[in-house]
Write a protein that binds this DNA or RNA. Structure first.
Lengths: 193, 193
DNA sequence: TAATTAAAGTGACCACGGTCAATTTATGGA
DNA sequence: TCCATAAATTGACCGTGGTCACTTTAATTA
């Protein structure tokens, strides 16, 4: 076991996070610079990299935080009964994942990307998502019951990602995200062949 | 209209591509360095960026090439009749997309990412994939016919991506990619609720 | 309280992607 | 053939992420 961190270290960590959140709030993820973070936090660059293995780790922490908050809202909603309600229930999550392209890229890179035993916060959130949705699917009144609930949940995740990705296409005219997702989920969860 | 490029430029372009392919073949996409490319091609760094807007554009060109070659094989196969055959038919494409993590990241970033009218080669391949698979789905004997063929095709694409992404997880023990994909496709294309 | 050891933090330095004013090379007309 | 113009290339330079030997500060022991 490694020793507990000193309170100075905790304080520094918080300052780094706070500074980063400030920057993201005003400039977005795309324009986040490590130099700017350490400047605002009042520490040296080296300190940053003793707290985060790389810039991506910071982004993961920030975005993971947002995902967690979004998931709390999603988890509090009633079990959705049809494609419309599913899309609506997932809306907070989709907003968290799909409003900034730079953030979405980070999410894609890290959604399942853990080396060995090291789950990042984003990967953790994705696991949580599947757990929650698996719960939704289990013994559901209307959802198809011919495939395992966990598989259904993974599928929903895949479609959410796909819908967001298409949103970032240039041929933007397109269907709005919410509509596209509803069509996917209806076909996936409520087939009538 | 812009004038046709001089043959010197074409030659330089080919040297750059060839050098890059060499490096990728021996070191993989992750270890590709622009400096190394220009060194082998015998040109200055600035020349590189007059041929490619950025490093990503080169990667796109290389990977797009591989995807095109894979798609040619896929397109030559018979129309798959069940989940197993679908997974088998798509195998070349999956191999091209999923063997190197660095390449997969590039693909995810650029699969739908075109700014305005500028389709990159990867985005183009993704469009081609949907076109081919839409063709497969149309008037298919066994595949579900309760949703539009194009939607089915997009769904297959989503599941292919999801299956590859899960492959890159650390909890690798997991199901082999091919099996997972088959389960997805069976549920997506051949529902029996 | 002084000495010892480990944690925390520092900043000069490197690697690598990307820019741009300046230079070289090709092309087409007089 | 010579000149004017555009195409192609160059390499010094910059921004930013990331490293590491070293200094400073806190905890621990004598």
């Amino acid at each position: 076991m490694s020793r507990a961190p000193q309170k100075r270290r905790v304080a520094t960590h918080e300052r780094l996070i706070a500074a980063a959140k400030d920057i993201v709030a005003s400039a977005g993820y795309a324009d986040l610079r490590v130099e700017e973070v350490v400047l605002r936090a009042g520490v040296a660059k080296g300190t940053f990299f003793s707290h985060f293995s790389d810039k991506d780790a910071l982004l993961e922490a920030l975005i993971g935080d947002e995902l967690t908050r979004a998931m709390a809202i999603v988890a509090a909603s009633d079990v959705p009964q049809n494609a419309d309600e599913f899309a609506a229930a997932l809306a907070p999550l989709i907003a968290a994942m799909g409003t900034q392209r730079a953030a979405f890229d980070v999410i894609l890179r890290n959604s399942g990307a853990m080396n060995s035993t090291t789950y990042g916060p984003i990967a953790k959130s994705f696991v949580d998502q599947v757990i929650l949705m698996t719960d939704w699917m289990t013994d559901h009144r209307r959802v198809r019951q011919d495939v395992a609930p966990a598989l259904l949940a993974e599928g929903v995740q895949a479609f959410v990602v796909q819908a967001i990705a298409m949103q970032f296409c240039a041929v933007e005219s397109q269907v709005p995200l919410q509509d596209r997702l509803r069509a996917y989920l209806d076909a996936w969860l409520f087939p009538r062949p």
